[in-house]
Design a protein around this nucleic acid. Structure first.
Lengths: 142, 142
DNA sequence: CATCAATAGTTGACGTATCAATTGTTGATA
DNA sequence: TATCAACAATTGATACGTCAACTATTGATG
């Protein structure tokens, strides 16, 4: 089965395939979805934020943010509260429970990424990073 | 807003963000989803295949394959037929219509990938390709 | 001060991917 | 030949992400 894709096209295919595989595997390995993890981990660092800055940090649609946070609140990982000075915004913060659990997830995540990037040198890591960033920039205004 | 992620973790984040952006943009630019495109394009090359080999080529879940092909059949891009020698398999092939349309999509796709990889040298393309392949291998048995 | 554009968050509709379970068929083997 | 494991395709449940439309609030400008 020959492949008539150009090099460029192959990269698109690879990218798609890789990230389709990552999500389920990440969750199986760590016990949490990668989006949820990023939300929690960001909260871990900043203590308290409103949703829209959280949205920018994690870079997924705000509709998805709302739904994730609602579920994380049900799960007791997160509390949401209104702020008096501006009734539009809702602040989000980790609960004690969430703060504790995130540490376990973090460990599993590190194990996961280390497996994935197991044989990568420091230089290679830098290279992929900048390349992925360049791709992102190149399509950012489409 | 400082970022306490390790280099490895950033790559995961980038990968996710990139591929989340790619899918909607690809569809806006080309007029077809990237999965559908890959299915059609593969069919264009092989003339006729059964679904499971198509599934392996495109590398998405067989449930998704079934649904895509059903819709593509409704859209008149594809025909599915049974084979006498083995009643389990269904063969898929492009219609004339599909065969014509894929060419237009192909052009738009090439334009899209060229934009995304606009400033990449041949060496860089090779490098990303092998790196993405390595990552895929590294997580393949998780 | 009234109006109106901008902002924060939410909801609904939709597309797509996964996994698990199911149906129907085939082929090997006891 | 009857049984049973393997296989192809399908379906149902679930999760995630996007976009577009909507609500409520805020703040600036006439």
């Amino acid at each position: 089965m020959t492949c008539l894709f150009s090099d460029q096209e192959k990269i698109l295919h690879l990218l798609k395939g890789l990230s389709n595989q990552i999500n389920p595997k990440f969750e199986r390995c760590t016990g949490i979805s990668s989006s949820r993890y990023e939300l929690l981990y960001h909260l871990y660092q900043v203590d308290e934020v409103n949703q829209s800055t959280l949205q920018k940090a994690v870079n997924i649609d705000s509709a998805a943010i709302t739904r994730h946070l609602k579920q994380l609140e049900v799960d007791g990982m997160v509390v949401r509260s209104k702020i008096a000075s501006d009734n539009r915004v809702t602040l989000v913060r980790l609960t004690e429970e969430g703060r504790n659990r995130i540490l376990g997830y973090k460990e599993e995540k590190v194990r996961f990424v280390n497996t994935m990037l197991n044989d990568f040198s420091k230089e290679e890591l830098d290279m992929v990073t900048t390349m992925l960033n360049r791709m992102q920039n190149n399509i950012s205004e489409l």
